[in-house]
């Protein structure tokens, strides 16, 4: 009784990844279509801009941490991920979770206004002025804009995210061949999907691994810079998971 398409193993994997992606994304896919998010008003933007740097960093660290927690849940639901050693699960998440968060951002990016959903409303890069890292914010918005223009489906984003996590090239893996096998299945599923939907052109337009890695490094550098300027704040007030991954 199952349609032909779903009986092919890579189609089954794609379906499974899509379900995991949908279950762990915020905003949910159904809220994306015809969204009615308001844009922050001038007064609201000024209020954010007037926040002390340490407070704004803490606020953003909390939002990033919530997103990371959803990515951890996504990973746990990926077929085969939990069968890896816990050592390797942690290596992959440490290296890839932030990349997935960054890619997921494009779902809630409004290209017309160059704004991203933040704390319930649409925010432009200027809202984050008090963070004191304009280049990082600009790079993140550039990435979101570029990805948004690709108009990726949820299936594409789910598989892209899975491939960012299940990356046998990450240093310190204990069982690299095992990760490579899982990566191979995901890679095939992605290519089959792209062929079926005539979206093979997408591959050449995706951000390079180097670009995502550079963006994550930029984030780490800014965390270090913030710690030098505001010693003790990260230890005292940032979410433990954020500290574990980035500090």
């Amino acid at each position: 009784a199952c349609p032909q398409a779903l009986r092919v193993p890579s189609e089954l994997l794609t379906q499974s990844v899509l379900l995991s992606h949908r279950a762990t994304c915020h905003p949910r896919a159904e809220d994306l279509q015809g969204h009615r998010w308001a844009t922050f008003s001038r007064e609201e933007i000024c209020a954010y801009q007037s926040q002390p740097t340490a407070e704004m960093w803490q606020r953003c660290a909390r939002r990033v941490t919530e997103a990371i927690e959803r990515v951890v849940e996504f990973a746990k639901r990926l077929r085969g991920f939990l069968e890896l050693s816990q050592h390797d699960q942690i290596v992959l998440l440490k290296a890839g979770a932030m990349e997935v968060v960054l890619v997921r951002m494009c779902r809630a990016f409004d290209a017309a206004t160059r704004t991203v959903l933040f704390e319930g409303k649409l925010a432009g890069p200027e809202l984050f002025r008090s963070l004191g890292c304009p280049e990082l914010v600009a790079s993140i918005f550039d990435l979101a804009q570029g990805l948004s223009a690709l108009r990726c489906s949820e299936s594409e984003l789910g598989l892209l995210s899975a491939l960012l996590l299940v990356n046998a090239g990450r240093p310190w893996l204990q069982d690299r061949p095992r990760v490579a096998r899982l990566q191979g299945h995901l890679d095939v599923a992605f290519r089959v999907l792209l062929r079926r939907t005539r979206r093979e052109g997408l591959l050449a337009r995706l951000p390079s691994p180097g670009r995502l890695r550079a963006l994550c490094s930029q984030h780490l550098e800014q965390v270090q810079a913030f710690r030098r300027l505001h010693p003790g704040v990260v230890s005292a007030a940032f979410p433990p998971l954020y500290r574990e991954l980035f500090a």
């Binding site: 951890v72 746990k76 939990l82 816990q86 699960q89 942690i90 998440l93 440490k94 998971l241 574990e244």
Partner: peptide, 14 residues
Amino acid sequence: KHRILHKLLQNGNS
């Protein structure tokens, strides 16, 4: 060293 990640990965519920 990665106490929180360990905990999240071991935690059974969604």
